[in-house]
């Protein structure tokens, strides 16, 4: 139920049709009220996190929790930065990049083969990857923990990367396949007549034509890995191997009463994604809806 949706949302053809009856005419006060109410529901928690992160601890206990911090203090942020968050940040970057690059390249090659090739083996692979969409990742943690320990990878960053690459395959292949399928057959034929091998055609023709899908897949999987919590939790142990979400969790365990610093850490962990959102809102949102097949 996913593929075309994703196609619709990933290609940047968000067709802004004339709304016709929707939206034109009398203003809809009821909807408007509901809309502003929901905005409050969304914004108040975020507002609370931002203002609290700019207070010092004394103000946190005495001032109104929703009052603006005047003057704002950056002391909580200094505490966060002094507390190893740089390491967590770097680990998250390594894990995200280390997982996303193989996810995208492997999925692209597989999608190309599954769309272009025939035969029993490829059909079997196709079925296997489709089934993979319904596997609840959590259910596999015990065997994965066992395998990672046996491989001697426990408490390393590759331990987080390897399962992420595996579980990233099914959905990424599904999305990319749809794009490869959309490439006109004649283009393949003419390149073949020019004597090019599949390997060449794949990189010269399919790769550029599917790049919007590859970007979408990269964003979606990158977000997933960046925000992932369970695999780092069970597969690593030492503080210097923590990724951002795990670091956050450990941080709040240590700083139980220093709420401003904890919330400052929350913000620091979100900044990279926020930056992405500000720069490429459309790509990011389509990246998120690409997850639709899960």
């Amino acid at each position: 139920m996913t593929t075309d949706t994703m196609r619709a949302s990933t290609k940047k053809t968000v067709d802004v049709r004339d709304t016709g009856s929707r939206g034109v005419g009398k203003p809809n006060y009821l909807a408007g009220f509901f809309g502003w109410f929901w905005l409050a529901v969304v914004i108040i928690p975020i507002y609370y996190v931002v203002v609290t992160s700019l207070k010092n601890q004394g103000d946190y206990f005495t001032a109104n929790p929703l009052a603006l911090p005047i003057p704002p203090t950056f002391h909580p942020y200094q505490e966060v930065i002094a507390n190893n968050i740089g390491t967590y940040f770097l680990n998250s970057v390594i894990v995200a990049v280390g997982a996303v690059i193989p996810i995208v390249i492997f999925a692209f090659m597989a999608a190309y083969a599954l769309v272009r090739g025939q035969g029993r083996f490829l059909r079997f692979c196709n079925g296997l990857f489709l089934m993979g969409l319904a596997i609840p990742v959590q259910a596999t943690i015990v065997p994965i923990y066992l395998m990672i320990t046996k491989m001697g990878l426990y408490d390393t960053l590759p331990a987080i990367i390897l399962p992420a690459v595996a579980f990233g395959q099914p959905l990424s292949i599904l999305i990319v396949s749809n794009f490869v399928r959309d490439i006109p057959k004649e283009l393949f034929e003419s390149m073949r007549l020019d004597g090019l091998t599949d390997w060449r055609i794949m990189w010269r023709l399919a790769f550029p034509l599917t790049s919007p899908a590859l970007v979408t897949v990269a964003i979606y999987q990158g977000l997933n890995v960046w925000n992932g919590f369970l695999f780092p939790l069970i597969l690593t142990q030492s503080p210097d191997k923590r990724t951002m979400p795990l670091g956050l969790w450990a941080f709040q365990g240590e700083y139980t009463v220093n709420i401003p610093a904890i919330l400052a850490a929350v913000i620091v962990s979100t900044v990279p994604i926020l930056v992405l959102y500000v720069i490429g809102r459309r790509q990011l949102l389509s990246g998120l809806t690409a997850g639709i097949g899960k």
């Binding site: 090659m109 395998m147 399962p163 595996a166 794949m202």
Partner: peptide, 14 residues
């Protein structure tokens, strides 16, 4: 071309 993807998926998911 499917093999890298398949290998990872089978090892760490199937």
């Amino acid at each position: 071309l499917v093999l890298p993807s398949l290998l990872m998926f089978v090892t760490f998911a199937v």
